[in-house]
């Protein structure tokens, strides 16, 4: 099945990450269920899913922190279950928990991680200077990390994760709890790294961040439910077209809209109702007329392009529905 002799070689033709039927069980709970995908060199791949969907478990297996129950994963051409230490030398990892030493200075932290990654002594100063510059911490080299603001800490953690120039980078919800401006700067860094040929696998639950990725994998209940570019996901996730409906009494309007002709799905999105219909140009005016007739004022419907959130809600809903029907089918069997 897998030739062990080829394990050490990292050929440019092979994908940077190749995952095949990866499954992880914790007792009776299946955290990951037969996940397969591949990511190429320099690709930014986003993992999107609700909390507890299995994103962190997947990343932890790919880093060699967890042993898979079944299936295979290769990172930089190396089997993570067989040679976790060889994999670790070739990856960078940043967790959702900030994990540098608060009681050490910026430079002391970088020196420590460069040291345990065995960065050659001659290159150490240069790489540390690069990481400091990348994090925008020039002049703050001797500040204790505990005293840095959130966005800087995050960029410093990224800098520490790439000191050994890994070809593959795993970022587990790296921007949670960071302000929007810092998030934007962080994503610029990720794109710079991608341009240098680093493969980045990033998990997030910010929908807007997913749009920054080359490809997106949607995970729900341990299963991969969709994989594609943001555009592909958005285009294929909805069966129909999308209308944004604004009106006065959203709570009363929603059941009316859901029961109207040609409506496949309707859900509240902030101060609007997003309605999936078979034909936006025809159903828009119909819905406006319907609500006006029922005494709900100011109803205006206009066609919109689906956002990642629309797709996400739709896909996760369908996956849940499928899981429920297959569970029912299994239960109905004698």
């Amino acid at each position: 099945m897998n030739p062990p002799d080829a394990a050490l070689a990292t050929t440019s033709a092979a994908p940077a990450i190749a995952v095949d039927g990866l499954t992880k069980r914790f007792g009776a709970f299946t955290a990951l269920d037969g996940v397969s995908f591949a990511a190429g060199q320099g690709e930014i791949m986003g993992f999107l899913g609700p909390n507890g969907a299995g994103k962190s478990t997947l990343i932890r297996i790919l880093c060699g922190l967890l042993h898979p129950s079944a299936g295979q994963a290769r990172v930089a051409g190396i089997d993570v279950a067989r040679q976790p230490e060889a994999v670790r030398a070739r990856i960078g990892y940043m967790s959702q928990k900030f994990s540098l030493y608060g009681d050490l200075s910026v430079v002391e932290n970088l020196r420590f991680f460069a040291g345990i990654y065995s960065v050659p002594r001659a290159e150490m100063a240069g790489r540390i200077a690069y990481a400091v510059a990348m994090a925008g911490l020039g002049g703050q080299e001797n500040t204790l990390v505990a005293n840095l603001a959130g966005g800087w800490k995050q960029r410093l953690a990224l800098g520490a994760a790439i000191l050994h120039r890994p070809p593959v980078l795993f970022l587990d919800e790296p921007t949670s709890g960071v302000d929007p401006e810092s998030r934007r700067r962080f994503w610029e860094l990720i794109h710079t790294l991608s341009g240098d040929g680093v493969t980045v696998l990033v998990s997030t639950h910010y929908m807007d961040e997913a749009e920054y990725c080359h490809r997106i994998a949607l995970i729900a209940r341990g299963r991969l439910i969709a994989l594609g570019t943001p555009l592909e996901i958005k285009r294929h996730s909805l069966d129909g077209e999308l209308l944004a409906l604004a009106c006065a009494d959203l709570g009363r309007a929603l059941p009316l809209v859901q029961g109207a002709a040609g409506v496949r799905d309707a859900a509240l999105f902030g101060s609007r109702i997003h309605v999936t219909v078979d034909e936006a140009a025809r159903r828009g005016p119909e819905l406006e007329a319907l609500l006006a007739a029922r005494g709900i004022a100011g109803a205006t419907a206009r066609p919109i392009a689906p956002t990642m959130e629309d797709s996400f809600v739709s896909l996760v809903g369908k996956a849940a529905l499928n899981a429920a029907t297959s569970a029912n089918a299994a239960g109905a069997r004698p």
């Binding site: 230490e85 060889a86 670790r88 928990k97 900030f98 994990s99 991680f113 345990i116 065995s118």
Partner: peptide
């Protein structure tokens, strides 16, 4: 604090 996990993803034995 989480630093243990960060150390464990390095090649350290």
């Amino acid at each position: 604090v989480g630093t243990l996990e960060q150390i464990l993803v390095t090649p350290i034995r």
